[in-house]
Amino acid sequence: MNTIEQDIEKYLNGEMTKEETTVFLKKIDVDPDAKRMLELYQEMDTVYDEKNWELIDRNTRYKKVEHYESFLKSDSGKTVSEAILKAEQSYFEEPHPSKIKQIFLYAGAIAAVFVAGLFLVNQFNKNVNGDQLYAEYKNWDVLPSLTLRDGGDDLTNIEKLFRDKRYEESLALLQKYVSEKDKEVNPQLLLYIGVTQLELNQNEAAIGSFTKLLNSNTLDVPKAHWYLALCYLKLNDLEKAKSELNLLVRSNISFQKNKAKELLEKLDE
């Protein structure tokens, strides 16, 4: 006769037959102590695995979670959260060694806008130029790496072509990959497809890809607003760009939020 602990070990190691599993789970179901023990063993398996992380049920009613949540939502929580944003902003405004390059780039962009402005000043009465802002704000370094996923060499190759700015080849391979292997189309791939289309001046197609992302059921949905805003900037449709940026600022992710606020200010100039 096995002890319940031995049964749990056997179950967790996947060493039970189908029949044994059924019997075991029935036994566990009517024995709250055994159920808790199994739960703890399962937690240990995840928590102690250095490559893993235990995500608890997002709708949990654990007192502790609710306690932390209510602090974060309270006035004192908001005070802390504002102080963090203030500190962050002030920290990034200071010159840092690694920022020097960015400052040069930024100065370059300003100079470009200025030079372009001299040429355009007689033709347009508008002082904001979407295309220039697009050039200034597009930064594909923020795209998550594709090699993270278990996509094998195909994705690594696609990403390399993309980073080398060989957009035509990378788009062809992306589309091939999606049609062959990834029927559901994961959000990261949609991002890459959209950005590649933008680079190839297939602007409407890019809008299509990002809209598809917007309608998907993933956490990356709000990111789509940022990329759609870039599309509209490129097409000089500033009102639509603004409305996408506003949607991003109001979303619950921090992705490019500061940049979006900055852009909105520029667009309102």
Partner: peptide
Amino acid sequence: EREIALAAYEQEK
């Protein structure tokens, strides 16, 4: 807020 609270709980555990 919930996301941070969940992460705090998981870290504590």
